[in-house]
């Protein structure tokens, strides 16, 4: 119960002595803050440094002497011209563009179903959350088995055809990406569902009642009351998934190893291969920085939107 017209001003609540207290607090926590700053900043600075050289662990010189191999912006120039990098980046965005909307719509649909009570809701609810709890590596192995040419997916499809289906899911360049996306959708739709359900439950009941009494249909209520009021939480859910898909690796790597060829090679897989198989660390540093910048821009954009959303 808020008493709207009796709220004392913010000015009366701010506290001058607290400011001096805050300064003391800053001094006391300074060492810890510096440490945290160092931990966060050091790897980034190190990467910037290495990305400007041609250093690799096989060169036999420690990393801090990488400047002896100074190449300036050569790595970045290479990156611009690296079609495999652009392919991986494009593929990553493609997976994102397919998976995030599908997960969002499925999650939203499930949330709509689960916001009301029905029989067996709790059991179904727990079941739905299981995929999220499966270790990604295990999920990868599961889907690897499912999509074998003699595996259960083909067996299932065979029920509808006269001849047994023997699709080579994971070795066909087009189908492999679809299989990978199906696995991601299976595993991460529950998270979307969970976040969106929480958001939907927090939409005030009386506002929905008011809309019903004003004659609004279910769809109108959904689009004019429920969704607008969930704006912040939707942005959070989407941002989480966008960032996570950018880092998609474990399930995919176990299923296809990025193959066949480079057919399922996403940014993370590409970086892994360049690092572990080709050992061009300075180049990897350049890639990682480029991606960090892209991700930061996405996050800042999302956070800005979110703050604007909270204003309403």
């Amino acid at each position: 119960m808020t008493k709207v017209s009796t709220i004392e001003p913010v000015a009366e609540l701010t506290d001058a002595p607290v400011k001096t207290g805050a300064r003391l607090g800053l001094w006391l926590t300074l060492p810890a803050q510096l440490l945290v700053l160092f931990i966060a900043l050091f790897p980034i600075l190190m990467q910037v440094y290495i990305s400007l050289t041609d250093w690799s662990p096989l060169d036999g010189i420690p990393w801090w002497r990488a400047h002896e191999l100074w190449t300036g912006l050569l790595n970045y120039a290479d990156l611009m011209a690296d079609s495999r990098f652009w392919g991986a980046l494009w593929r990553t965005f493609f997976v994102m563009a397919v998976c995030v909307p599908v997960q969002f719509l499925l999650g939203l649909g499930l949330a709509v179903l689960f916001v009301d009570d029905f029989r067996g809701k709790r059991v179904l609810y727990s079941t739905l959350l299981v995929p999220m709890m499966v270790v990604p590596a295990v999920a990868g192995y599961m889907f690897f088995m499912l999509f074998q040419s003699g595996g259960p997916v083909n067996d299932l499809l065979s029920l509808f055809t006269s001849d047994p289906v023997r699709i080579a899911w994971l070795s066909d360049p087009d189908l492999a990406l679809i299989a990978v996306m199906l696995a991601d959708i299976w595993q991460w739709t529950p998270l979307m569902f969970l976040i969106l359900l929480a958001g939907m439950i927090s939409v005030p009941q009386d506002q929905q009642m008011a809309a019903i009494l004003l004659g609004a249909s279910w769809w109108r209520r959904f689009f004019t009351i429920v969704l607008p009021r969930m704006k912040s939480i939707i942005i959070i859910a989407l941002a989480i998934r966008v960032i996570e898909i950018f880092k998609i690796f474990d399930t995919l790597f176990i299923m296809t190893g990025g193959g066949p060829g480079v057919a399922t090679e996403t940014i993370s897989v590409y970086i892994y291969k360049v690092t572990q198989q080709e050992l061009i660390w300075s180049y990897v540093a350049a890639i990682a920085l480029a991606i960090l910048i892209v991700l930061s821009v996405v996050s800042v954009f999302a956070i800005k939107r979110m703050q604007r959303g909270q204003g309403t």
Binding site: P204, D206, Q207, A210, A211, A216, S217, R229
Partner: peptide
């Protein structure tokens, strides 16, 4: 309603028009 249940994510005009639109 006791707390008026105004649609606070809309403008005054949109609130007034809500029922007619619906």
């Amino acid at each position: 309603f006791q707390n008026y249940a105004i649609f606070t994510h809309m403008s005054v005009r949109e609130n007034l028009a809500y029922g007619l639109r619906a």
